[in-house]
Design a protein around this nucleic acid. Structure first.
Lengths: 243, 243
DNA sequence: AAAACTTATAGTACTTTTTACTTTAAGAAT
DNA sequence: ATTCTTAAAGTAAAAAGTACTATAAGTTTT
């Protein structure tokens, strides 16, 4: 009951050869959320290789030997969307013994929020198609990716209540009703318009611009943007966002 | 710019040999929280082998090739504390390229909550000493374990506000003032006694017992226990715990 | 150009929750 | 019996949340 390599320093007391411990594959997978027409959606790829050929899946890749986890997730996001400065967050790591048909591959799950307008999904050698799916109407997915999306969504729903990240799903300039739509899609609950407005404005985190929306068949709403500087300043004192 | 192994299915388009991608080490590390004398504390081990010989560290181990992540964390916890049914939760995965002197080892971070009375830490071959440290008075730690503890604490503080897990730090039967002490230690804030009591009781998640504390030099407080069944039943309808 | 329509935005009244504090109760120690 | 300490219940004011109404400011229709 002793290790083959006594130089090593973990608690293990078993009789497996040490080399068995260094044969893990490591990947990152990204659940990319978008928002359009009052609905939350997810960017999926259609696989062009085995296993799960032709299945839909969330984008992911193996981590390079000299690459940090966040860098890896960021690389995938940029590669696929062509965007920089995408908001992303690690939320859970999936490592079931049998989660992967090829071998023991554990994957670090990230979710990210992108402004729906700006993305132009880019297919690659290994990807047949890239497409947005409504969160409530997903196709069958390969691997354990249904579980990953489910968990990502639960995490996002929690986070969105205490940190002002809903803005990441909207363009720089947005109306209060658009913001309300984002939160209604995220939290699956309706808000009263005047009260939502009052609450958001009282947080003092978004600034009104001297612009209004255009091409609308009614009184145009004022445009706002999120004041990240002010939030960062406030954050140091106390948490100030809560829905 | 193409993979050596075209059977593989990730997005990677680089010229590294495929085998380079399967040489990751994988471990789990556990931040074990306890509560005593109105203070939050952490169980640390003193390392008995290189690297970081004699340094203090959080307990952890390599994951076995045929072992799930949660099982691995649970094994470490049981091994070290001798307890079963310990509350634990995966919170973040740490995988910086240089986080480990021996090679590329990524670690899945867990935190756990144990009832302070019940634990009898068990040292092992690789552990010189096992000891509780006040969360505000930690020794220097090996690896990136300071970062891991810091992040565990932040996660715990968030979680404890929306899920009734504070009980995990107390014995089965506890008084309301003891519970208040736990939350004050966790959240680093004082609560008003009558109001705390009112709020907790209004949640209808703890049941009064027909017992009172003994050996106290004043009016003894009633003992309560947490009603997990009732919580699980409520949980399905809506979240009902919030501090 | 006026009227009708749609949504923005301000305002108000009511309810519930939170907060701060006071009072009484119950046992232990002297 | 008296004193001490903490439990536990109660109360009132303040704050926050909720539901709804009224007015404003545009576009479209007539």
């Amino acid at each position: 009951m002793h290790r083959k390599n006594p130089d090593f320093y973990f608690l293990s007391e078993n009789n497996l050869p040490f080399s068995d411990f260094l044969h893990f594959g490591l990947s990152t997978d990204c659940v990319i959320f978008g928002y359009k027409n009052k609905a939350l959606r997810v960017l999926l790829i259609q696989r062009g290789a085995e296993p799960y050929m032709n299945s839909w899946a969330i984008p992911g890749d193996l981590v390079y030997p000299d690459e940090d986890l966040d860098s890896s997730a960021n690389r995938i996001l940029q590669h696929l969307t062509g965007l920089e400065n995408i908001y992303f967050e690690q939320f859970h790591t999936f490592g079931s013994v049998d989660r992967h048909p090829v071998g023991r591959v554990i994957t670090v799950g990230y979710y990210s929020l992108v402004r729906s307008d700006n993305h132009k999904p880019i297919a690659s050698t290994w990807v047949k198609e890239v497409k947005w799916f409504d969160i409530n109407d997903l196709p069958a997915l390969g691997f354990d990716h249904e579980e990953i999306i489910h968990k990502a969504l639960l995490n996002l729903r929690k986070k969105v209540r205490t940190e002002p990240i809903g803005f990441e799903l909207l363009p720089e300039k947005f109306t209060l009703l658009e913001l309300q739509g984002v939160y209604e899609a995220l939290l699956q609950q309706q808000f009263d318009k005047p009260n939502f407005r009052k609450k958001i404005l009282s947080m003092d985190l978004i600034t009104p611009l001297n612009e209004v929306e255009s091409n609308v068949a009614h009184r145009p709403a004022k445009l706002f943007n999120f004041d990240k500087k002010r939030y960062d300043a406030k954050k140091n004192n106390e948490i100030s966002f809560e829905l």
